[in-house]
Design a protein around this nucleic acid. Structure first.
Length: 864
RNA sequence: GCGGACGUGGCGGAACUGGUAUACGCAACAGACUUAAAAUCUGUCGCCCGUAAGGGAUUGAGGGUUCAAAUCCCUCCGUCCGCACCA
């Protein structure tokens, strides 16, 4: 008996697969159906650890399984290669970002290859290469032509540590997502992509994504945040105000126009144009505005911040009553970035308005009567009623239900030309400017006479200059005179290049299209090829991308479609999405609080100590494997010891794929034992039995039980893979191996059944442990390689049992077990159940009232 | 505050459409082999009572629907995730 040695076997099979090109996707359409499986491509940050491998292992199971089932599978890999860490590395270690990135790519590519992933490496792309980003620049210019790009002054989130602008999505709790530094507000000229033009499409499209997790769809829907309501204009009471502010009145957004007769004040955002204008003359208003601007933006501070405001002294008129004057305030809880930056306060129906009204002693008139209350007894004290009801105290709206009143109010507003139905969104346009070197240059030129001029197609790509320095903060492109100074492509006068680069999320918003056709040099992709492969059938990645990346990619795909680059009617890039859990590991700290890697500690006399120095180690929380906590297990180290199959099998075992799985040494030992047990099972019997496929089990007579076991395993493992439950697939394979280990085929029929079962085993493990599967297949004498042996079909006749064991309950408690022929009639089952001695005993002294028989399932006797 | 998910042995978890709860793995324990250890193999293994046969309670807590509930409904408790004054 030999041991299985992955160190020899794995490289051998990897080179055979590579030589035969088994992982390559078809270059042309064939009669095989297509299947596009994609894992979110990695940022080349250094090395891959066991935690990263889970994502790829899952994608590879799907890829190998689908290929075995006869699909033409596209399973590509590339590098999300632009980004800040490369610049940080440049600053810290005096290496060029490009050199640092390319070196990481090389290391990580080697690691992915060692994992035995069935990737089509012919299609590898790196987003930092000009042959990728030049197409991105061309797409950007197309979006510009299409009116989807805007340059405008905007108050932006400025990260003072990273010295760059952040998108709203990248500000978490008022801090930069990467640096963790408090974000400050600055006003700058910025580039935006008009994702808001697609708000409805992106929201409505979610409903068609039935193979996406409900959670992700919900998060995106909330992020887009569509609200239907109305815009209402309150005319200025004093015509001089209309003149002064250059508008007839103040327009607000509301979702509750039905409460219009409860209006007791208007409130403007502290940075609303009118507030700011008034602040210029009124020091009191001005100081209020400043106070609000400097208030904290963290979750806690917002929650605790009391409502406060200032009376602006301006009055407006109620849209339905020219004699009704309403005071205009500015209030700290009104956001300038949502709706029109102004609201009308209807305190009885909104808690914030009520808090505000009580504080400043403004009118509170209830206008919505909750169901089953009467007007005389209903009053509002400190709690607003925000639910639906019957409108009262509201003139022509009296007696209407909330929904009817909303409609009616809008109709009336339209008649007097002071409002109309409106929809607003929480979603903001996508700010894509980054004041960074290591990104895709925005391909425009600023000319004193011609303004913003797109770089002509023929001059693409706008390549990043190599000779830059990182010794001073800020954007090196800004300081690079030779690169920055150019002639205007239109008038030829001296002009300057745009020095902002694109947010790296742009790079990852279309890479899946390039994968489908990475060869054209003159266009981003071949439209027919992209159409053939798209959409991605199965996308696999982390939940942390639920909003940013997935929303941007959905938008970008629609925008590309609308530029006529691809015929993809619904614009959805990812038909199926799976968000996998992370690999976690214990964390360790030294006496003085340093994080320690698992390789830096060992157990001595039952206590964990530092290997160097022997000082005690404290065990901390179990957390997601990450470099910063040092709780990572290097993939190369792991493969050196246990092999790639062990890594793949481990990360797929035990926990459901969407949940986290904890890395433990015990679990890894178990995997190693299982691999050796499985191999010795095959190795011990291979010489005694026929080759798989050479004997189809025992065709005559009653099939052996082991055949039933094998075919049930086919059914169960297939179902588990199809439904992304890899942990139960692993458990079913364990069951199958345990059964096989107890079985020895004595006669020819038995040996034939054993050969069949072992062949099936090799096929079933092949998506999970492809190297071991090949080794087993070869040892068994199978034809060719298991990778081309297809997927086994379960024989339906072997899936049905002739007898079933069913439970007998008395009053819902299990009292016995009976064995019956499958399909036994209800009467016979009842008789058999009553005849069971255990059942009879528990029925003593009772009268049988009713017997429920669920055929082949259960018998329940009701007695009393 | 709003929205969502989840809660099953010492641990990770399994359980089809309501139909024998605890599959599979880890850990633990006992034994075999061995000078010994490791490795390997065999067996035991959720809880309570019992030597055993057997019995009892049990899927966060409480209630309900049902012949039958981990699964459906209600209330509560707890954990996790997303959003954040969104008018």
């Amino acid at each position: 008996m030999s041991r299985y040695n992955p160190r020899e076997a794995e490289p051998k099979w990897q080179s055979i697969w590579a030589d035969q090109g088994v992982d390559r996707a078809g270059r042309e359409a064939s009669d095989r159906p297509k299947y596009y499986v994609l894992e979110m491509f990695p940022y080349p940050s250094g090395k891959i650890h066991v935690g990263h491998s889970r994502n790829y292992a899952m994608g590879d199971v799907v890829a190998r399984y689908k290929r075995a089932r006869g699909f033409d599978v596209l399973h590509p890999m590339g590098w999300d290669a632009f980004g800040l860490p490369a610049e940080n590395a440049a600053r810290e270690r005096q290496v060029h970002p490009r050199d640092w990135t390319l070196k990481n790519i090389e290391v990580m590519r080697g690691q992915l290859k060692r994992l035995g992933l069935s990737l089509d490496w012919d299609r590898e792309i790196a987003t930092c290469e000009p042959d990728y980003y030049k197409h991105q620049q061309a797409i950007f210019l197309k979006l510009m032509e299409k009116g989807l790009v805007e340059r405008r002054k905007a108050k932006v989130n400025w990260d003072p540590v990273d010295n760059t602008v952040l998108a709203n999505e990248q500000v978490i709790d008022g801090k930069g997502w990467r640096s963790g530094a408090p974000v400050v507000q600055r006003e700058l000229d910025q580039w935006f992509l008009k994702i808001t033009d697609y708000a409805d499409s992106l929201l409505d499209g979610l409903e068609t994504l039935d193979r996406w997790p409900e959670k992700v769809r919900l998060m995106q829907a909330n992020w887009i945040g569509r609200s239907r309501g109305a815009h209402i204009t309150f005319p200025f009471a004093d015509p001089a105000d209309a003149e002064r502010f250059g508008m007839p009145g103040i327009t607000v957004f509301t979702t509750r126009p039905d409460t219009i007769f409860g209006a007791s004040f208007l409130a403007l955002a502290p940075d609303h144009a009118i507030t700011r204008e008034l602040g210029q003359d009124d020091p009191f208003v001005d100081s209020f505005t400043r106070d609000c601007a400097s208030a904290g933006t963290s979750e806690e501070e917002i929650e605790k911040a009391p409502k406060k405001g200032v009376d602006l002294g301006v009055k407006v008129l109620h849209p339905f009553d020219k004699k009704w004057k309403i005071p205009v305030w500015s209030a700290n809880f009104v956001l300038s970035t949502y709706g029109t930056g102004a609201i009308f306060g209807s305190p009885a129906g909104d808690q914030r308005d009520l808090d505000f009204a009580r504080k400043y002693d403004l009118d509170v008139t209830p206008v919505v009567l909750p169901p089953n209350t009467d007007a005389a007894s209903h009053s509002i004290d400190t709690e607003a009623y925000t639910g639906p009801g019957t409108i009262y105290n509201s003139r022509f709206l009296d007696g209407l239900a909330t929904d009817e009143a909303i409609e009616r109010c809008i109709t009336e507003l339209e008649k007097v030309n002071l409002g109309q139905g409106a929809t607003t969104y929480r979603l903001r346009d996508w700010l894509v400017s980054r004041q960074r070197y290591w990104g895709c240059p925005i391909p425009v030129i600023h000319c004193g006479t011609c303004g913003v001029v797109p770089v002509p197609d023929t001059a693409l790509p706008v390549e990043l200059p190599r000779d830059v320095t990182f010794d001073t903060p800020g954007n090196p492109l800004d300081r690079h005179e030779g690169w920055r100074n150019v002639d205007c492509p239109e008038c030829g006068a001296p002009a300057r290049r745009e020095t902002d680069t694109l947010d790296t999320f742009v790079c990852s918003s279309w890479y899946f299209l390039r994968f489908a056709s990475p060869w054209p040099e003159d266009k981003p992709f071949d439209a027919d090829e992209a159409r053939r492969w798209m959409p991605v059938d199965q996308y696999v990645g982390g939940i942390e991308h639920a909003i940013l990346h997935l929303l941007y990619a959905r938008f970008f795909t629609r925008a590309i479609r609308d530029c006529g680059l691809i015929d993809l009617p619904d614009g959805e890039p990812f038909a199926g999405l799976f968000t996998q859990g992370m690999v976690t590991h214990e964390t360790y700290r030294s006496e003085d609080g340093r994080w320690l890697a698992p390789t830096e500690i060992e157990e001595r006399d039952g206590k964990l100590v530092e290997i160097e120095g022997g000082r005690p180690v404290t065990v901390g929380a179990i957390e997601k494997m990450s470099k910063s906590k040092k709780n990572v297990v290097d993939l190369d180290d792991f493969i050196d010891t246990y092999g790639a199959d062990a890594a793949r099998w481990f990360v797929l075992s035990d926990s459901p794929p969407e949940r986290d799985v904890e890395y433990t040494d015990g679990g890894v030992d178990g995997v190693w034992r299982f691999i050796q047990r499985l191999w010795s099972l095959v190795d011990e019997r291979a010489d005694e039995i026929p080759a798989p496929g050479k004997a189809a089990g025992n065709a005559e007579g009653e099939p052996l039980e082991i055949r039933r076991v094998a075919h049930r395993a086919i059914r169960d493992v297939t179902e588990a893979i199809e439904s992304f439950r890899f942990n139960t697939a692993v458990a079913k394979i364990h069951d199958f191996v345990n059964a096989l280990r107890k079985f020895r085929g004595g006669d020819d029929a038995g040996k034939a059944a054993e050969a069949e079962a072992l062949g099936i085993l090799a096929q079933l493990i092949s998506p999970f442990m492809p190297h071991l599967a090949e080794a087993c297949w070869e040892r068994l004498g199978g034809d060719g390689m298991v990778v081309s042996a297809g997927w086994p079909e379960a024989d339906p006749s072997l899936l049905v049992d002739n007898t079933v064991t069913i439970a007998v309950q008395v009053n819902g408690k299990r009292r016995g077990e009976i064995e019956l022929a499958k399909g036994t009639a209800k009467d016979d089952a009842e008789a058999a159940a009553l005849a069971d001695p255990g059942v009879a005993r528990s029925l003593e002294g009772l009268t049988v009232r009713k017997v429920i028989v669920v055929p082949d399932r259960i018998v329940n006797i009701v007695a009393g």
